[in-house]
Amino acid sequence: MSRSLGVALIAAALLSGSAASAGGTDPFPYRRGPVTITEHGVEDRGGVLVRDITYQGRAGEPVRAYLVEPARKGHYPALLYLHWFEPPNPTSSRLEFLDEAVARARQGAVALLPDLTFPWSVDVVGDRRDVANVVAQTVRLRVGLDLLTARAKVDKVAMVGHDYGGMYGLLLASADRDRVSAVVAMNVDATFSNWFATFFLGLSGDATIAYEKLFERVDPIHFVAQRGGVPVLFQFAEPDFFVPDSTRRTLVSLAERPKDHRLYPDAGHELDAAARADRQAWLTPHLERS
């Protein structure tokens, strides 16, 4: 993100407020309700059940996911894990946080790890269909919250998201602030259009500006200031090729409190063991309040 774009986004956010509250409309509309689950298999990992499932989105589309829960019945907090984009790395999928979710389940928690589809398996095309796909992906994750709150019998869910997964997590922390207890956002960008234009489409000049405008109502930078008190932990590598320092500073500065911001020197975009330990420790008290 250029310095001029960062300044423009700050001005837009301060003048117009959150996209979620513009005109009083929900940019990710859907209807809450029961969720249909199909189980394809289950593995017992030392007292933790890893269920390979598909759940149905509100439009009937299938969402493949892992549902991780203690084998022993009980009342547990819940987490939603949202993976990064790094093909062909196998962790560019519901696999990224599986070990982390199993470890948390051993401490007593239920977790959902869905396979995200945009832009993983749905192409970026460079027009309004990309915005529609961001909305559709967010709605599928809201249905995941329906699944988790019913499964774990809780009112609130903590979230961990990396890269694009973290950007979707920030949207949910605003759109579903009544159901989110905390969110960890790892190496996130401020706008969807920046990575799409740069790494997928190779846009420049006026074409980039026009494309950016399409996403204004769904960009994370317009939501971080409207979380209704949902705590956020930002985790960033320093330096990070994909997230310039100016982007990081802009996003963190606009985020409302409570917020925490931690840097990991030379950790790379994937982050490292220190970041993992930090988010596990940070999440614990917020899970207790789920």
Score class of each variant (00 low, 15 high):
3 R>P: 08
6 G>Y: 00
11 A>N: 02
12 A>F: 05
21 S>L: 12
25 T>N: 04
26 D>Y: 03
31 R>L: 12
32 R>E: 15
37 I>D: 02
38 T>K: 15
38 T>G: 10
39 E>W: 04
40 H>G: 13
40 H>W: 09
44 D>M: 02
44 D>Y: 00
45 R>E: 08
49 L>I: 10
53 I>F: 01
58 R>P: 00
62 P>V: 07
63 V>N: 13
64 R>W: 03
75 H>M: 01
80 L>F: 03
86 E>T: 14
88 P>H: 14
95 L>G: 04
96 E>N: 09
101 A>C: 09
102 V>G: 11
105 A>R: 07
106 R>H: 14
113 L>D: 00
113 L>C: 01
123 D>K: 15
124 V>M: 11
124 V>N: 14
127 D>R: 01
142 R>K: 12
145 L>D: 08
168 Y>G: 11
172 L>A: 05
175 A>Y: 08
176 D>F: 01
180 V>L: 13
184 V>R: 00
186 M>K: 13
191 T>H: 04
193 S>P: 05
197 A>N: 05
199 F>G: 01
200 F>T: 06
201 L>F: 13
202 G>N: 15
209 I>S: 10
213 K>I: 03
216 E>I: 02
218 V>W: 02
230 V>A: 10
230 V>H: 14
231 P>S: 11
234 F>Q: 13
236 F>H: 11
241 F>V: 06
243 V>C: 15
250 T>P: 00
257 R>N: 03
257 R>I: 02
261 H>I: 04
261 H>T: 10
263 L>Y: 09
264 Y>R: 08
265 P>Y: 01
270 E>A: 15
272 D>L: 09
280 Q>K: 08
287 L>V: 01
